[in-house]
């Protein structure tokens, strides 16, 4: 039996959570979006990225804080995101699920290593 819980992540949520984990202190919306675009080849809108990060925060996988206002942003702050313990747990669970799904797939299907 598979229990569907708040730890279930969508594709973009998983990608965004990994990006936050990877960028560390530099994980603010614009940087997350650029990293996602580079790695996935898809052009996500700014609104879509923030909606996803907000959902992750609502689930407790990240926390956010506002930086000081910056002139280049028209006097607005950057919103930095940080991985929480629950978020790290969710990533481990997602990796385990993925490995379980890929298990038993022949080498002809498996993607080439990067």
């Amino acid at each position: 039996m598979v229990v569907m819980s708040a730890t279930t992540l969508g594709t973009l949520e998983l990608a965004a959570l990994l990006t936050v984990a990877r960028l560390g202190n530099d994980a603010y919306g614009l940087a997350v979006r650029r990293d996602l675009t580079e790695r996935t080849g898809r052009d996500y809108s700014v609104g879509a990225v923030y909606t996803t990060l907000q959902r992750l925060e609502d689930k407790g996988f990240v926390t956010s804080r506002a930086s000081d206002p910056l002139p280049v942003r028209g006097g607005r702050s950057r919103r930095h995101f940080t991985l929480t313990g629950a978020g790290a747990h969710a990533l481990r669970e997602a990796e385990r699920h993925t490995a379980s799904i890929w298990g038993g797939i022949g080498t002809s299907i498996r993607p080439e290593p990067a």
């Binding site: 700014v46 609104g47 923030y50 907000q54 506002a66 280049v72 942003r73 028209g74 607005r76 702050s77």
Partner: peptide, 15 residues
């Protein structure tokens, strides 16, 4: 907060 963050990113990338 949401509006401010998105507008800020838009402004920064726009510049």
């Amino acid at each position: 907060d949401f509006t401010d963050a998105v507008l800020g990113d838009l402004a920064e990338e726009y510049a």
